[in-house]
Lab assay of single mutants.
Amino acid sequence: NKASVVANQLIPINTALTLIMMKAEVVTPMGIPAEEIPKLVGMQVNRAVPLGTTLMPDMVKNYE
């Protein structure tokens, strides 16, 4: 099973992601793959992301 990106803390709306906000975890359903973490740094979330939430592509602005 591949790990996904999971919020390590509450991430407020429009916050630019940093490494300490994210962790890799095997979850179902899968979200953004953990190997994308370096690419996510500096990208903004378009909603508040609660602690423990799996990051999905539609939660990150301009994620492709």
Rank of each mutant, 00 (worst) to 15 (best):
T15K: 04
L19N: 10
V5F: 01
Q9R: 14
K23H: 14
K61M: 05
T53N: 11
M21H: 10
Q9E: 14
Y63A: 02
T15Y: 04
T54K: 03
N46W: 11
Y63D: 03
M30T: 13
E35N: 04
K2W: 15
L10D: 11
K23M: 13
I32N: 01
K61H: 06
P29V: 09
L17F: 03
P50K: 11
T53A: 11
A34M: 06
G42W: 06
K61D: 12
I37V: 04
I37W: 02
N1Q: 14
P57G: 14
E25A: 05
L10A: 13
Q9N: 03
I37H: 03
L19S: 13
V5T: 08
P29F: 03
I37A: 05
A48S: 07
T53G: 12
L19P: 11
V45L: 13
P12K: 04
K23N: 05
P29W: 15
V6P: 00
L17H: 00
G31R: 02
L55Y: 01
T15D: 07
V45Y: 00
K61T: 12
Y63Q: 03
M43I: 06
N8G: 09
P50V: 05
V45P: 05
K61N: 07
I11N: 00
K23Y: 10
P50R: 04
K61S: 13
N14L: 10
E35G: 03
V27P: 03
T28A: 14
Y63V: 02
I13D: 11
V41H: 10
N62A: 13
V60P: 01
N14D: 14
D58H: 07
I11R: 00
V26I: 03
V49Y: 02
P38G: 11
L51P: 10
I37S: 13
E35A: 03
N8V: 09
K61Y: 09
K2S: 15
D58T: 09
I37F: 05
A24S: 10
P33W: 08
K23R: 14
I13Q: 11
M21K: 03
G31H: 02
V45H: 00
T28L: 03
T54S: 09
E25P: 02
G42C: 13
D58L: 03
L10H: 14
G52Q: 14
L40F: 02
V41Q: 13
L51K: 07
M21Y: 11
A3K: 04
L17K: 00
I32C: 06
Q44C: 11
M22N: 00
A24I: 08
I11D: 00
I13F: 07
E36M: 05
K23Q: 03
M59W: 11
G42K: 07
M21G: 05
L55R: 01
A16W: 05
A24Q: 10
N8E: 09
V27K: 06
V45E: 01
A7N: 02
P12R: 05
T28Q: 08
A34P: 09
K23L: 12
A34I: 07
P57K: 12
M56T: 12
G52C: 12
V6H: 07
V41W: 05
G31S: 03
V6Q: 13
K61V: 09
V5L: 03
I11G: 00
M43D: 09
D58G: 09
G42Y: 05
E64A: 13
L10M: 09
M59A: 08
R47S: 11
L19T: 08
M21E: 04
P12Q: 11
E36W: 12
L55A: 00
A48D: 11
P57Y: 07
L17W: 00
Q44E: 08
M22E: 01
G52S: 04
L10V: 14
P50W: 10
V26N: 04
S4L: 01
N62V: 04
A34H: 12
T28K: 02
I37P: 00
K39D: 04
M30D: 15
M56S: 08
M59Y: 10
M59I: 08
K39Y: 08
N14R: 07
I32G: 00
A48E: 05
G52A: 06
Q44A: 04
T28E: 15
M43S: 11
L55T: 00
P50S: 10
P57F: 06
L51G: 13
L55Q: 01
R47G: 06
P12S: 07
T18L: 07
E25N: 10
I20Q: 14
A24K: 04
G42I: 01
T53L: 14
T15G: 07
A7G: 08
Y63F: 06
P12E: 15
M21V: 06
R47H: 14
M56H: 04
V45S: 06
N14S: 10
